[in-house]
Amino acid sequence: NQASVVANTLIPINTALTLVMMRSEVVTPVGIPAEDIPRLVSMTVNRAVPLGTTLMPDMVKGYA
């Protein structure tokens, strides 16, 4: 099973992502692959992402 990116904290809308905000976890449904974490750093989220939420491609500006 592939690990996905999961919010390690509440990420407010329009926040630039940092490494400490994200962790990898095997979850269903599958979200952004964990190997993309380095690429996500400094990208911003377009909605509030609660703790434990899987990051989906449409949640990160410029990812999809």
Rank of each mutant, 00 (worst) to 15 (best):
D58N: 12
M21G: 03
G62W: 08
I11E: 01
P29E: 06
A64C: 13
A48P: 14
P57M: 09
N1D: 15
P38F: 14
M22Q: 00
I11Y: 00
T54I: 06
V45I: 07
N8A: 14
P38T: 10
P50T: 10
D58L: 09
V60E: 00
T9D: 09
T28W: 04
M43K: 08
L19A: 07
D36Y: 09
R47K: 11
P50L: 12
A7S: 09
T28Y: 13
A34S: 13
Q2N: 13
M22Y: 02
V30I: 13
P57L: 04
M21D: 04
A48C: 07
T54F: 02
M22T: 02
V5L: 03
K61S: 13
P38C: 07
P33C: 07
L17F: 02
M43L: 15
M22K: 00
G31T: 01
N1A: 15
K61P: 07
K61A: 15
N8R: 09
A3H: 14
V30S: 13
L19V: 10
E25F: 05
I32S: 01
L10N: 08
V6C: 05
V49Y: 02
R23Q: 04
G52P: 00
P12D: 10
L51F: 11
P33Q: 09
N14D: 14
P38D: 08
I37R: 08
N46C: 08
A48S: 14
S4H: 00
Y63W: 12
E35K: 06
A7P: 02
G52H: 13
A3N: 06
M43I: 03
V45Q: 01
M21L: 06
P57E: 08
G62R: 06
S42P: 00
T54N: 02
V27S: 04
P33Y: 15
N14T: 06
G31N: 01
A16S: 13
L10E: 09
N14R: 08
P57Q: 07
K61Q: 11
A7M: 04
T9R: 14
T54D: 00
V41R: 06
I13S: 12
V60D: 02
E25T: 08
L10Q: 12
A34N: 05
V20W: 13
A34Q: 13
K61R: 15
